[in-house]
């Protein structure tokens, strides 16, 4: 009687990446086919739309969000610190950037203004992440719950500001601040909705985080901390400090992105839900799709950004919004299968 069993396996990182990449592409293919078979939508129309979206730079607007946040989360997740609070950290970054741009004289100065705003944003995000970090490090409070709750606190705080003291004079009662000064705005590339400078900053973090995690003692300790905290502690590296560092870094990157959303996109502070827009949660997926490897993060962020953008622009004719969502859901499900395939193999024996 033949037996089928599922067995763990270790693929070398490159092969694993290739398997996932192949599966990601195949997943899109299968999703296109399913849609055309199940819903009778012309396969060519869908393919054109999907391939078009993947090849167009429009999705960079989201890559700029997902890449740094994913990198930051990877730092925390390597240490098995479940920071689920990127959403809130993005919002707090946005609040800080809006503050610098709107209420300090720096906002009126070119180059210096945006830089100061982004710096403040990173700091705000980092500090926001630090609170659950400290609770975890010193009191062993479950960080998954605290970070998750802090998201809603950040929403509320931001909403208090835009409904209350920071509400703009020229917004007719809507919960928004006034626009930030022109000097603070990061201008869009013509025909697109992103700033090249934001892109450069986002990509610059890839080698930085990679080298930190894989080539430094502290980074190595971070990666080992999750599975063997005592072993790391005995090497002379304080676990408490590692936790705090991990939260600081991931919060800072999320905060930076939040600041960038204000300077590059919204140009004003709006309610928290509209700044984060769930992207902090999507970033968790970005981090894991790359298997927490910073070197693979651009690929993963590119893939998720394109799909994220695709969901909005795919709707043409029969490809209604629900169909687009179905499509994206299908792609992600197939991607999960591919992750499974890269980690396990099926053995059949007689």
């Amino acid at each position: 009687m033949p037996k089928i069993a599922v067995v763990r396996r270790d693929l070398p990182p490159t092969l694993s990446a290739v398997v996932r990449l192949g599966a990601a592409l195949a997943g899109i293919g299968i999703a296109i086919l399913s849609i055309s078979v199940i819903l009778g939508v012309d396969a060519w129309t869908v393919t054109e739309r999907v391939v078009g979206t993947f090849l167009r730079p429009d999705m960079i607007r989201y890559l700029i969000v997902f890449l740094p946040v994913g990198l930051g989360l990877a730092v925390a997740y390597h240490a098995r610190l479940w920071n689920l609070g990127a959403e809130g950290q993005i919002v707090m970054g946005a609040v800080a950037a809006a503050y610098v741009a709107l209420f300090t004289p720096l906002g009126e100065i070119r180059v210096v203004g945006p830089l100061a705003a982004l710096l403040a944003a990173s700091l705000a995000g980092a500090l926001w992440a630090l609170l659950p970090g400290i609770l975890r490090a010193y009191l062993n409070v479950n960080e998954a719950i605290t970070t998750l709750m802090m998201n809603y606190v950040a929403y509320s705080l931001c909403n208090y500001l835009v409904y209350g003291p920071w509400r703009g004079r020229r917004v007719y009662g809507y919960p928004e601040t006034d626009l930030i000064p022109d000097a603070s705005k990061l201008q869009w590339v013509h025909g697109y909705s992103f700033s090249p400078w934001s892109l450069v900053i986002a990509i610059a973090f890839v080698p930085v985080i990679y080298l930190f995690l894989y080539k430094t003692r502290i980074g190595t300790a971070l990666r080992g901390y999750g599975s063997s905290p005592a072993a790391v502690e005995l090497s002379g590296i304080s676990g408490t400090r590692l936790i705090i560092l991990a939260f600081f870094v991931s919060g800072a990157l999320a905060g930076l992105v939040g600041g960038n959303e204000i300077l590059m996109y919204h140009r004003k502070l709006v309610p928290g839900e509209k700044i984060g827009a769930g992207m902090g949660f999507v970033s968790i997926m970005v981090a894991w799709l790359a298997d927490l490897n910073p070197a693979l993060m651009p690929l993963s962020a590119y893939y998720v950004s394109a799909l994220h953008y695709l969901r909005m622009v795919m709707q043409v004719g029969e490809l209604t919004e629900p169909v687009a969502r179905f499509f994206i859901g299908l792609v992600f499900m197939l991607l999960l299968v591919s992750i499974f395939v890269s980690k396990y193999k099926v053995v059949i024996r007689k």
Binding site: T220, R223, G224, G226, S227, S228, A230, A231, V232, L234
Partner: peptide, 12 residues
Amino acid sequence: RTGVVLDLTIME
């Protein structure tokens, strides 16, 4: 358990 970090390489 407390000696070596199993997830890391020998060098790490």
